[in-house]
Design a binder for these strands. Structure first.
Ligand SMILES: [Mn+2]
Ligand SMILES: [Mn+2]
Ligand SMILES: [Zn+2]
Ligand SMILES: [Zn+2]
Lengths: 152, 152
DNA sequence: TTTCTTTCTAACAATCGTTGCAGTTTGAGG
DNA sequence: CCTCAAACTGCAACGATTGTTAGAAAGAAA
């Protein structure tokens, strides 16, 4: 089990990448890049929207989805489907895992390699495995406390 | 890494469980139990509906969702959210993991314990972990072949 | 700077999976 | 058989996401 560090691309880097792809640099996009950069809690499209809207009230939710999808398909952000209702976007590109609160939906990064987790060819049945995701599910301290209080 | 076997409850067992809970045994429920019992491919509510409808054309999709939710909250089936668009239900109660085709959505069981996958208290941050899910993502043989054919 | 081409945005409608609701039906105990 | 709480059906509503498109804006070229 080895420990690593997070790696999030800066707005400037993302801007440069978009430029290289021949995509235009709009204030909407730059604003989204900025919001992603200092959001470490796996925001939903809606929550990115809410934050961007504070400095750009006219932006549309559609544009946020569009840009997040673009970034995801360029491989510049990750997208997590954890059964919390909506997709969560992850600007942290380092391969890592997640700890999820099933009660409130909080998502925390786990920076660790589990070298043991590899499938023997026998179990692969011809599959080509591109990624291995580990999700630890449970209850965060806040939700545990709240539950205890309710049971008292 | 230890290997195990699948464990799926029979229609009779589920019927008995419902009876114990004071829930009524309706033909709709029994039919759904049967369909689940011999469905090893993690069906969606819609696909359970389609199958049940063959022998009971008047059943409503609403009832299928209702019964699947009941079973899931009784802990008698699992529910997977894998980002394939809709929830997948899993009658196999043994703790196990999954191999998912990101192209066609196929889901295959992986019966193996990865004993290495345990979080040191230091990383838990006070979380109470109830379950650890491992998802291997990639491409199934069919989809790989189809992709190769397209690239030729 | 002005023009021209291309891409993007905003607004709105539509879709998909799922759940809420209301009225009707039915399983199961008496 | 009755009774009646519980379950069923059909449909409306909902939240998340995507399709469409006319007009706006960015960037390149002149
Ligand atoms: Mn993460
Ligand atoms: Mn399974
Ligand atoms: Zn929580
Ligand atoms: Zn496939």
């Amino acid at each position: 089990m080895t420990v690593r560090l997070p790696a999030v691309k800066s707005p400037a880097e993302l801007t440069e990448l978009f430029r290289q792809e021949g995509l235009k640099i709009t204030p909407q996009r730059v604003s989204i890049f900025r919001v992603l950069h200092d959001n470490l809690d796996h925001p939903t499209a809606e929550s990115v929207y809410d934050t961007v809207r504070q400095e750009m009230p006219s932006i549309s939710l559609r544009t946020v989805y569009q840009t997040l999808n673009d970034l995801a398909s360029m491989g510049e952000i990750g997208q997590l489907d954890l059964g919390t209702g909506s997709a969560r976007f992850d600007p942290n590109l380092d391969s890592h895992h997640h700890l999820v609160c099933d009660t409130c939906g909080k998502v925390i990064d786990i920076y660790a390699d589990f070298d043991d987790v590899r499938l023997p060819r026998r179990q692969l049945q011809g599959f080509r495995v591109a990624a291995t995701e580990i999700v630890f599910r449970g209850q965060c301290p806040d939700c545990s406390a709240r539950a205890d209080r309710a049971t008292r």
